[in-house]
Design a protein around this nucleic acid. Structure first.
Lengths: 219, 219
DNA sequence: AATATTTGTTAGATAGATCTAACTTTGTAC
DNA sequence: GTACAAAGTTAGATCTATCTAACAAATATT
């Protein structure tokens, strides 16, 4: 069984694979906050356990076994976040650090009970999909708000950044998942957007923010 | 901050101190499932961090700092067990292994929320006291059933053994905390007792079992 | 009291996860 | 296409938590 450390490598490998497609040693190194030689030697371990494919100087990829293992850790993380928000009254900006620890607990029944109590959710509080108990995750490819043309109306369905800083920013602007957003205009100079929502509130959102807001069109 | 390993040493030290008064290296060794030299060296570490007092060939004792640290770990363990039973529908025989992992999570708010949701319980599902958030634990000194004379009536309030084997045995005899028990007779040969309870059910309980059932007199 | 048993200690080895320093390979830029 | 920068690797050290083997102290037994 993988150690917590190995589980973290697999999880980050899984997330980076979905975000950027390719994962190299230096990216892992900075995401994990450890030196490159450390990553290098750990990747060799994971390779010995058939969890990753690796060739010198090439990007690292998860094996099928590694993908499944990683997906099940991500599942535990996201179920935990959902449980903390929906059953324990935490704000979405508070749950990441806790889930980061709970995800390493080995107790299938514990997570099955969470799942049941939550009514088998398919996404977490940040709109990220929750892999099923076999480690299968539906790939969701949403547009981000910065690609939407002024005049259009969309629904905020997920976030490309779940850092507490960003979540607190969204709280301060009363932005929540599920909201209908109307793009009023876009500034050509800095790509910032003026967006109105819900109770006619309207806000200016920088390009940096718009890129992290994932949306789908209103049917 | 103490590692999970150190936390386990402190917790077992705390529990053994309350159960047996004195704690020696060999007892720790068998309870933790590690060799005596390992315990010896870890105790020296804990001593450096002022968590225990130790002199060669003498029993180990917790310092004030160690007591508090240990009590807070026990608090997390017992709150978790209570949460699993009362809020997540687990049986009392299933929760120990899970709590064993959850107790090492560093997230004060997580346990405060559990505490609130549970209505600030003072004992866990096995009747053991839950230390408060300052690490203070009320000492409960219950009699055990084997010391009760035939003819008397008592209430089952706690267990001196929370192993799943014992808990499953209690399940099979429908024994639960809070039940009123009447001692009908005691066998002089093997100290086994015939006890009746609730719906007039009556059972023979061996001395070994009676010693693990903690009771108080009916007022 | 002498001896045997249990308990505890010391020394030295190992495995996991990390680091720094030094070197190599790959990719980029002029 | 050489040269520089970025990315990756190797070697060797460190720290934690563990082990076994050998020895020493304390306790129990006769």
């Amino acid at each position: 069984m993988a150690s917590s450390t190995e589980e973290n490598y697999l999880k980050i490998l899984f997330n980076l694979t979905h975000e950027k497609g390719e994962v190299n040693i230096s990216e892992l190194s900075s995401q994990l906050g450890v030196s490159m030689p450390t990553v290098n030697s750990m990747i060799k371990n994971l390779q010995k356990s058939d969890l990753v494919h690796y060739e010198k100087y090439k990007p690292v990829t998860l094996s099928e076994k590694g993908k499944k293992t990683a997906a099940l850790i991500v599942r535990k993380h996201r179920l935990t976040e959902m449980f903390l928000v929906n059953k324990m009254g935490f704000g979405w900006e508070e749950v990441h650090q806790i889930a980061e620890q709970v995800e390493h607990i080995h107790a299938p029944k514990f997570f099955e009970r969470m799942d049941e109590m939550l009514g088998f959710p398919t996404v977490d509080p940040h709109g990220s999909p929750i892999p099923d108990k076999h480690g299968r995750m539906q790939e969701l490819h949403y547009k981000n708000l910065s690609q939407v043309k002024p005049g259009n109306q969309v629904i905020l369905v997920a976030l490309a950044d779940s850092s507490s800083d960003f979540l607190e920013f969204l709280n301060s602007r009363k932005l929540k998942l599920g909201m209908e957003l109307k793009i009023l205009s876009k500034e050509t100079y800095d790509q910032s957007m003026i967006v109105s929502y819900e109770n006619q509130q309207s806000e200016t959102l920088s390009e940096k923010v718009c890129e992290k807001l994932l949306v789908r069109s209103v049917e």
